[in-house]
Design a protein around this nucleic acid. Structure first.
Lengths: 199, 199
DNA sequence: GTCTATAATTTGATAGAC
DNA sequence: GTCTATCAAATTATAGAC
């Protein structure tokens, strides 16, 4: 007797972890149920729509977790560029300490299915919109105007996702670290420019 | 009677195109042979190692094509920031005119298989190293020192790959366009800085 | 080089007992 | 909610004729 089914959350967790290593099409329901110590019957009980319905929930859940993580990490800084640099440094540590497993189960799956599973593409779209909004809101609070804040937020998300591709492929965080430094430069320059125009 | 087998190149082309839409695990050998108007026997004749061996060739071939395209587009400019902005603008046009099919068959496949097919990861690694080297060499010729040129090259590649993820997922080039503008800003700033330190 | 046939396994999904 | 059994289709790969 639990408020939330243990089995249900074990399946979500196992699917997330498998997607990070093997992607959407590389992960079978059998692997998921085995890793979650669950059965096919349970999976289809919770997600009658099968793999697609489960995947949509995994994308949304992970997306919310990472958004909250970003906001917690960045929200009460007085040095926005440094906060973003710290965010990238944290990503590098995670990449190295997890043998370059994908930190993000969303971007890879989204790229795989964008042309074939429109419902999943939309689920990932909603996640990325939320991230860009969070990053943009942060930068706007730091002093950028709304448009520039959102555009810089979009570049941040793009660079993070692409950095994951490069890090995973090269098994090296050099590109990711460089990207973080360049994002810091961009933010510092944008803030300096905003202050100049105001002052 | 042909110097290069028609069938062989049709299979490479078909595989490339299918990877751009469905990824590695989402593309079956049956889809490939059907699209290439070829047979299983021909495929295993040219690539006895099967899907992995064919994929390695697709990654290397596409990687070389895109590297040459980048160099041709950028090599004789006197405005490096603008050249990169043009490169991103070209990417936006391709994305929109192809219904957001993935412009790059390498990044998505690499992310899918990085933890499971080390040979393919290494093939993609070689491609990305070549791209970073090409971008770095270009920026070094423009006046940056070797380290900064290579790091900025790595950020460029990361941002392009991540921009493809976002564009494909959102079916919108806004993030890609913003990324291009920000890369232009970074290059212009780095070149101005380099000139200051020299002069 | 190309073809068909087929092997051996895995896939996502369903049925129905408990 | 969980379980097993099972289906129909698809998967990579091989064999051997032509």
């Amino acid at each position: 007797m639990q408020e939330v089914s243990d089995t249900r959350s074990r399946i979500v967790t196992a699917t997330t972890e498998l997607f990070r290593r093997r992607g959407f099409n590389g992960t079978s329901l059998k692997e998921i149920t085995t890793a979650a110590n669950a059965t096919t019957g349970s999976l289809y009980h919770f997600w009658p729509g099968g793999k697609d319905e489960l995947t949509a929930e995994v994308l949304a859940t992970s997306g919310a977790v990472y958004r909250e993580f970003f906001e917690a990490m960045v929200n009460d800084t007085n040095n926005p560029g440094q906060a973003i640099a710290d965010f990238f440094a944290g990503g590098s540590e995670i990449l190295e300490s997890t043998d370059f497993i994908d930190p993000c189960p969303i971007g890879g799956v989204a790229r795989e299915v964008a042309s074939t599973h429109d419902g999943l593409r939309q689920a990932a779209h909603a996640v990325f919109d939320g991230w860009i909004e969070a990053a943009g809101a942060f930068l706007q609070r730091c002093g950028l105007d709304a448009d520039e804040a959102r555009e810089l937020g979009a570049t941040l998300v793009a660079t993070i996702e692409g950095g994951f591709v490069l890090a995973r492929t090269t098994r090296d965080t050099a590109a990711f670290t460089a990207s973080g430094r360049h994002m810091q430069l961009l933010i510092d320059a944008a803030l300096a420019d905003a202050r100049t125009r105001v002052g």
